[in-house]
């Protein structure tokens, strides 16, 4: 399962979806909205995505993960819209027979989401809203 969503990301539901009786390991990464940046207090983050392109890229990342690691299931979900401090912005979860593959595949998944998915964030602070200076998209 790979998608962008405006709905709250439910960790328990994702855990249940990625779980498989043939697997002895689940590794997941959960990204959260932090209450500060390097200078000031953050109240929330507005995420905007080019959804259709993000879903194409997530499909590619999913294929790469299955080609490179012997894993059972891969889930990647990125939230969009306004999120308050403490809410989940992104989750990647992988199940595999043994832990090594799941750790590596999960790490590859989140690193590539950050490098390749056209998603942008605007932080809300007491001084107003500011787009975060990002990185050039990686082909």
């Amino acid at each position: 399962m790979i998608l962008t969503t405006k709905d709250t990301i439910d960790q328990t539901k994702i855990f249940d979806q990625v779980k498989d009786d043939s697997c002895g390991a689940i590794v997941s990464f959960t990204g959260l909205v932090r209450d500060h940046n390097s200078k000031e207090k953050v109240e929330g983050i507005f995420y905007e995505a080019y959804d259709e392109m993000v879903e194409e890229i997530l499909k590619n990342i999913e294929k790469e993960v299955f080609n490179n690691w012997n894993i059972k299931k891969f889930i990647a979900v990125h939230r969009t819209g306004y999120l308050q401090v403490g809410e989940i912005s992104v989750m990647v979860a992988v199940s595999s027979e043994h832990r090594k593959e799941a750790f590596e595949a999960c790490s590859y998944g989140i690193e590539n989401i950050k490098k390749r998915c056209p998603i942008w964030k605007k932080e809300k602070t007491q001084f107003g809203n500011e787009w975060i200076e990002g990185v050039k998209i990686n082909e």
Binding site: V90, W120, E133, G134
Partner: peptide, 10 residues
């Protein structure tokens, strides 16, 4: 055609 400025997902 989309104009893609620097990204900051995650």
């Amino acid at each position: 055609i989309a104009i893609i400025p620097p990204i900051s997902g995650g």
